[in-house]
């Protein structure tokens, strides 16, 4: 396995980058094949399955009736949690959430929250007393690289198909979650000295830092994150941001095409 010889892998990735090639034959800013299925889980109020290359992610949306946060008495709440359970790969261990899974949850959460795609005031039932909480749980079943983008895609796709089970909460007829935007994420990893879009497992293993960019409908930035050791220049950021603009628009289109 290449995992045993990361320095050889790094050398190989550097050689390939010099010739403008990638280890699986893709172009620098070419993504792997993506398939998206929605409403695929019984019992979840909204759900999505993303197959991104060999990476497989499920997301499910649940609602709960709760008391509002004291500083926002007339707004519902959002919680996004990504679980890196040991099913996801050989390297994952059981135990409390790892720093990696907390980072993943929070980066995905921020992208959705900060885009204000969900109108939280519409989730208020009785101000100060009862609001709806939206809970998105993301389950990584197979990690073969770039789980960030796949998780963000699964989360927004599940939200966009979610129905509020109003009948169960005794507040009228079921209705779709009021959601108006489709924030999506594009992630770049430094591999062999240059940034590539959608790194696979080997590229992550033999690569350096990564940058996650979440863009909303107008191409506005809603969440950024740099992870792992390494630095980038403003010029490099400008280049990947431009790629992210067109890539995120394509992903949003894919999500919107699935809506009922």
């Amino acid at each position: 396995m290449v995992a045993l010889v990361p320095s050889l892998l790094r050398q190989e990735l550097a050689n390939l980058a010099e010739q403008d090639q990638r280890i699986d034959g893709r172009g620098q800013f070419e993504s792997r094949q993506i398939t998206l299925e929605t409403n695929c889980l019984y019992n979840a109020e909204g759900s999505a399955k993303v197959t991104w290359g060999d990476t497989i992610i499920y997301a499910g949306v649940k609602f709960e009736m709760r008391t509002p946060w004291p500083d926002r008495p007339a707004e519902g709440s959002l919680m996004c949690s990504a679980e890196l359970r040991p099913i996801a790969g050989r390297k994952y261990e059981p135990g409390p959430p790892s720093p990696e899974s907390i980072e993943l949850s929070r980066v995905v959460d921020r992208g959705i929250r900060e885009s204000n795609c969900i109108d939280m005031s519409k989730l208020c039932i009785i101000p100060g007393e009862k609001v709806l909480g939206v809970m998105i749980d993301i389950h990584v079943l197979s990690d073969c690289g770039n789980i960030f983008d796949a998780c963000a895609l699964a989360a927004i796709a599940a939200l966009r198909t979610a129905m509020i089970p109003a009948e169960r909460f005794d507040i009228g007829e079921d209705y779709p979650l009021p959601i108006s935007m489709t924030p999506t994420m594009s992630s770049f990893t430094r591999v062999g000295g240059r940034y590539v879009l959608d790194a696979n497992e080997e590229e992550e293993l033999g690569g350096d830092e990564r940058v996650h960019i979440t863009l909303g409908d107008e191409g506005h930035l809603h969440s950024l994150q740099k992870g792992l050791r390494g630095t980038l220049t403003p010029a490099e950021f400008a280049e990947i941001l431009e790629v992210a603009q067109s890539r995120c628009a394509e992903l949003a289109e894919l999500v919107n095409s699935k809506e009922a």
């Binding site: 889980l41 019992n43 979840a44 759900s47 499920y58 499910g60 949306v61 649940k62 709960e64 949690s81 679980e83 359970r85 040991p86 099913i87 059981p94 809970m135 749980d137 389950h139 169960r168």
Partner: peptide, 16 residues
Amino acid sequence: VRYNMAPFSTSDRIRP
């Protein structure tokens, strides 16, 4: 063996 129910697998969400 780890048997686990996903939080969204039942009608009320299960705490992970």
